[in-house]
Amino acid sequence: MFDRLTLADVHQDVARNIVSLRQSQDLFDDLTDDPAEWLLAQKVEDEVKPPPYRSGTPVIDRPFEDAEWFNAIIWPFKHWQSSRFSDGSHGVWYGSESVETTVHESSYHWYRGLLGDAGFERMAVIAERKVYSVACGAALLDFRKAADEHPDLLHPSDYGFCQSVGARIHREGHPGLLTRSVRRPAGENVAIFNPGVLSNPRHNCLLTYRLEGERIVVERQPGVTWITLNMGCANARR
């Protein structure tokens, strides 16, 4: 399969969908009701926490806000976990060509996670997400056509074959791959193994996911339905 792969020269923004909050919460408000003491606690924290991200080439790369860089790019490379192209022994960063594809992908995993907690599938559950636009510049291994001959690349739940592919990509030092989306056939995903090909994370939008029975209602604007996904069938409606 690898002998027949081509390279996709990707130089574009990709969407990264992560857990977040629409409204931030003061982390110290459960310790005291005095706002002045909140500020004091924040000052103490600022004095002891590690320094923020600094670019290795500040003349070329203007240092951007460290939290966005960490949340949008570096997190999966610091916190390895099992996924489609990793058995948990190395980090992989996933992004999509559109916000809509990230919704289909993340909704599936969110719903499957809720099913693991007894009773959640029968409750109204709300989650909030943040989507970043991240610049990707790399020659990625193109697996879009390979899936026609190797359908396990798009298997909905068995990741064994994909993890073996990911292990080889990681071992050989390729920056990443481009593949078709499993959850949204019209979409495409990138799996990145080297954070050096990602840069310039920017806020794209905030999303709210609301589980109603077997449906997930997605809002871009609070109170206004954007996408509805029926988790009981393969298709989703907009």
Rank of each mutant, 00 (worst) to 15 (best):
M123L: 13
E121A: 13
I73G: 15
D9S: 13
P222K: 04
E128I: 01
L198P: 14
L27R: 10
W93R: 03
R215V: 00
R54K: 13
Y159H: 13
M231I: 02
R16H: 08
D29E: 13
A118K: 07
P201V: 00
E212P: 05
F2R: 09
F28G: 11
Q25W: 00
G232S: 14
G56M: 06
E37R: 09
Q25M: 04
F193M: 06
T208D: 02
K145A: 12
M231S: 04
E128T: 07
Q81A: 15
E68G: 10
G116P: 04
E47Q: 12
D87Y: 02
W38I: 03
V197M: 08
Y132W: 15
L229E: 01
V92A: 15
P175M: 03
L115M: 12
H79S: 13
P52Y: 06
Y108E: 05
H90Q: 04
L211W: 00
A138R: 02
M123E: 13
D26E: 09
W93F: 14
H79G: 08
D152H: 11
I192N: 11
W226H: 15
S164G: 08
I227R: 15
A118E: 11
Y53V: 09
Q12M: 10
D152Q: 12
G95K: 04
K49G: 05
L154E: 09
G137R: 12
N194R: 10
C233S: 11
Q221D: 14
Q42V: 06
W69N: 09
V217F: 03
R112L: 06
A127C: 07
D13S: 10
D34T: 00
I227E: 08
A8I: 00
A72P: 14
A15W: 07
G95N: 05
R22P: 06
R171L: 13
L40W: 09
F161Y: 15
D29Y: 00
S181H: 02
R129Y: 03
F143H: 03
R112W: 03
S107Q: 03
A8D: 12
S106L: 07
W110Q: 04
V165N: 10
V48Y: 15
G223W: 02
W226M: 00
A139L: 13
I18H: 05
E214Q: 13
F77C: 08
T228Q: 10
E105N: 06
Y53T: 03
Y108G: 06
H170W: 06
G137E: 14
D142A: 03
C136D: 02
F64D: 12
L211Q: 14
P185Q: 00
L207S: 03
